[in-house]
C-alpha cells in the first residue's frame, strides 16, 4: 500500500522515514534465518518480499529525485536511539537463548512493537493526513492485531506453542495503535478525512 502511494503520487508526504528505516532494520535482524533454515516457500517468499519492499521504500524516500523532496525532515524528529537502545538492552536480557541470531531475532520483535511511534508522532503533527497514509497505518496495525487471533488458535491446537516474548510484544504493538484506531474508526464512520487531535 505504501509503495503504491509513493509510486502513484510521486510523493512520500506524511510518511516517517524513521519508521521505514526501523522496519528495514527489523526485517534484517529477524530474517537472518533465511540463510540457515527453511520453513516453507510461502514463508521465504514473504520474508524476501518484506525486505525488498522495506528497502525499496527507504530508497525512494532517500534517493529518488522527486520523492525525496516531499519528505518533511523537520517534522520527522523522533530519535532512533530512544527506541533502538532500550530494545537492544531488553533483547540482551530477555531472550530464549543467548546466541547472536537469537538475540537479534528478539531485538527485532521488541523493535517492531515500537517502530510505528515516529509515524504516529508525525501524523499527529500533520493537518491533512492522506487517505492512503491512514489506510497504510491501519493495515499495519491490523496485521499484528490479527496475529493475536492466530496465536490463540495455535495455542489451543499445538502442543509446544509457547511464545511469550512474541505474544507480549505483539499485544503491546497492537495496543500502541488503539488510540489511532479509535479516531480512524470515528472518521471512517463519519465519512471524513482522518484528523488526529493534537
Amino acid at each position: 500500500v505504501l509503495l503504491l502511494k509513493i509510486r502513484a503520487t510521486r510523493s512520500c508526504r506524511g510518511i516517517s522515514l524513521k519508521t521505514q528505516e526501523l522496519y528495514a532494520l527489523v526485517f534484517i535482524c529477524r530474517y537472518l534465518d533465511l540463510f540457515y533454515s527453511y520453513i516453507s516457500l510461502y514463508n521465504t517468499v514473504m520474508k524476501v518480499t518484506y525486505l525488498a519492499t522495506a528497502f525499496s521504500i527507504v530508497r525512494y524516500m532517500r534517493f529518488d529525485k522527486v520523492v525525496r523532496q516531499t519528505y518533511d525532515k523537520e517534522q520527522d524528529t523522533f530519535r532512533y536511539i530512544f527506541l533502538i537502545a532500550p530494545c537492544a538492552l531488553l533483547a540482551l536480557v530477555l531472550n530464549h537463548r543467548f546466541s547472536p541470531t537469537e538475540v537479534l531475532w528478539t531485538f527485532s520483535i521488541y523493535l517492531e512493537a515500537v517502530a510505528i511511534l515516529p509515524q504516529l508522532v508525525l501524523m499527529q503533527r500533520t493537518q491533512n493526513i492522506d487517505n492512503l497514509t491512514a489506510n497504510y497505518v491501519a493495515l499495519l496495525g491490523a496485521y499484528r492485531g490479527f496475529y493475536i487471533l492466530n496465536w490463540i488458535y495455535r495455542f489451543a491446537t499445538e502442543k509446544h506453542y509457547r511464545q511469550w516474548i512474541v505474544w507480549i510484544s505483539g499485544v503491546a504493538q497492537t495496543a500502541l495503535y488503539a488510540d489511532f484506531f479509535y479516531y480512524y474508526a470515528l472518521c471512517w464512520k463519519a465519512n471524513q478525512r482522518l484528523q488526529l487531535p493534537a
Partner: peptide, 10 residues
C-alpha cells in the same frame, strides 16, 4: 531445543 527455536512466523 524446544519448538520455540523454530521461528515460523513473519
Amino acid at each position: 531445543d524446544g519448538e520455540w527455536a523454530r521461528h515460523d512466523e513473519l
